[in-house]
Amino acid sequence: MASAMDVPQATGSQGEFRDKLVAEGLLIPSSVAGVTGQGPAFVDLRQRLDARISKLVADEGAVAMEFPPIEPRHDMESVGYLTSFPQLAGSVFAFHGEDAEALALGEQAHAHQDWSGHLQSAGIVMVPAACHPVYPALARQQVPPDGITIDTGPAWVFRHEPSDDPSRLVAFHMRELVRAGPADTVGAWRDAWRDRALQFLQSLGLPAVFDEANDPFFGRSGKVLARSQRAQKLKFEILVPVGGDHPTAVASFNAHGDHFASVFGLGPVHTACLGFGMERCVLALLFTHGTDVSQWPADVLAELS
């Protein structure tokens, strides 16, 4: 497993694809790998895809909930995220000092020196998955006996895995459906959505397949978690080629058992979620159909009209 200090390099074809996207104004690079802006054509595609997903999920009767891209640090601690993914977590630190220290901080910052020693935790972390703020929110209401589905909308999420690969962004939009319901129903819900989502992405002309998967758990001990997750078939991904040596996951389908329900006291329910990586879906479309959207197949354009 790569150490936290490694910045994975894009493969040749990922690099070519990125350079083309930048040259054509679809993506806007910055001085930091993975911190990438989106030009008007990219934003338009992402919004059209989001609207199409809204149609896809309309019959689910999902309840809309939106959250900021930050959440209480306590919630991230409670779910064990810092045990599973310490390398991905983002934490907000803020200045609480007096005038003299503020002056020192400002001078160091102006000289681009390390000023982090002047900061203390603000009690806030970056949301790493759109579903995370949903579970504590559900704890503040009653989960109906036959279950509930939440639609997070296209939420900003953060994962610190800087890379040159245009598909691996440090911050990106993830649209999730989150299901909390009776233990014997959420697995079937997840599998049914996996099949629907696969069909949907194929209807956009994408050569999409699904496969069993695991999350990138940290370190040697993370191998136990990753293999355990695979052995229990807790995670599926939909994969599409986006220029790398291997297809890229553009959507994932996760069963959590009673993990989140027990942490947040949701009652005798299990939870599951599915998420579309919005930027990755758009990149998969651009990679498959080309960067000139006017030349895309008519049926794909009709789906996204």
Partner: peptide, 27 residues
């Protein structure tokens, strides 16, 4: 829990002064 199991794994390595090889890092 899964998280407790990795704590057990690291605790066993400490107590027995061993390192589980890759093939043993399973559920």
């Amino acid at each position: 829990t899964s998280h407790a199991s990795i704590s057990v794994m690291l605790g066993l390595e400490d107590a027995f002064d061993v390192e589980f090889p890759d093939r043993m890092l399973t559920r």
